[in-house]
Design a protein around this nucleic acid. Structure first.
Lengths: 220, 220
DNA sequence: GTAAAATGTGACTAAGTGGTCATGTGACCT
DNA sequence: AGGTCACATGACCACTTAGTCACATTTTAC
């Protein structure tokens, strides 16, 4: 984690440095990210960087911290449609609300996603526990869905979690990548066409390729 | 593509160099792969490397060529279970036979997969056409499946192709990664437990999470 | 005002990168 | 034997990397 000196910084400066780091990871991924470029674009000296952070991993961990806080803050103001909702309905709401969040800070989300979803697999247990956290939450969801019969009792929970996690990532990154090329990503995410894409994808996840149910169900 | 000098090399030497490149890409991915290490482990001098290849991309393209040829050769001896088979049955056969191939040269498959599935997205059109080739084949499959009613006519073909491609990659790399840690990957892939994993995953893809049909269907 | 503590700085190191090139080597041909 | 041609070599180049450290500057405490 960053040292105290970094948190003592005036907010403006801290934001410039953070933004430079976000840009770097979003553009180059973790392995190829350069501290030299971060300090250059962040308007600080090399020495200062090492007074703020231990190393490249440290600054990335800070970004993980930032996104976790921002996400918590964002979801604080949101509430799932109706309690007792079906698990699939809840998951759909989560995906859509998640995409709303993603469009508030797309570069940060892209940076984190790029590192975690691609290089993360090759950094051993460093990122494994982060992934485990998501999986555990999904497994809980699946357990309750199996209890009320929404998901077949024979389905392996880990496997179902893999399925949901995979689609969550595929859908998010696909929408994010396309949306970042539009001029107004927030607007684009809210477009019926984009929303339908999410619905259709989740519908396939729920009902399978063989027999896809119509996607337009009323909730939220 | 590599220059003629490389193909003129005695087979043994060419194999050592190829193997060094495979190891390098499998271990470090494309971006972080080092030509210096390849020449060191390949037992050739720096100058020779540039007499064989243009650059890092060139040697990787050669590996793409190698795997394409090996795969063609491998599938030449195999035949799909029964013609007129259901598309899902055919896809299942493809996956399982593909895994058989993967276990014949796991390092090469891992290297290619790692680069194509992760960094590939960030190398623009360089790898895009390779991906398009796979997608096109899938779209053809899906079209015929829609015609004989196996897949809902309303399903978007590109979307269905994304679904099948995604699962193909997720299942393959998951099995490959786990299998490479076992002492005999070929044996491990053929284990009923591993085969059941493939069946179950494909069953979820076919029937959805909500209602998963039993996976053990007789074919092959 | 003065001392002390905290923070900022960029030249510098050692190591690694992709890529070049003059020189060397040995096989083959005339 | 002389000449040619394909291939092999590693020193070398310019550049980038992560990280350090002696010194400069600013802030705080008294």
């Amino acid at each position: 984690m960053p040292k105290q000196t970094f948190y003592n910084l005036p907010e403006e400066k801290r934001k410039v440095v953070t933004s430079a780091a976000v840009d770097e990871f979003a553009e180059y991924g973790f392995e190829a990210a350069s501290i030299n470029r971060i300090v250059a674009n962040g308007g600080i000296s090399k020495g200062s960087f090492y007074q703020y952070f231990d190393d490249k991993m440290d600054v990335f961990k800070y970004l993980l911290d930032v996104i976790a806080n921002e996400k918590t803050e964002f979801f604080k103001g949101k509430h799932p449609p109706s309690p007792g909702q079906s698990v699939f309905g809840y998951f759909r709401w989560m995906m859509k609300t998640g995409m709303e969040f993603n469009s508030t800070n797309p570069k940060l989300v892209k940076a984190i996603g790029r590192v975690l979803l691609t290089e993360g697999m090759y950094y051993g247990k460093m990122f494994a526990d982060i992934k485990k956290k998501t999986t555990d939450a999904l497994v809980e969801m699946i357990k309750s869905a199996k209890q009320n019969g929404e998901i077949d009792a024979n389905v392996d929970e880990q496997m179902a979690a893999t399925v949901m996690d995979t689609w969550s990532n595929v859908i998010s990154s696909s929408i994010l990548n396309e949306g970042m090329q539009k001029k107004d990503i927030v607007k684009w995410v809210r477009l019926p066409k984009t929303q339908k894409y999410i619905d259709d994808m989740l519908s396939i996840m729920e009902h399978g390729l063989r027999n896809v149910k119509p996607s337009s169900l009323d909730d939220e």
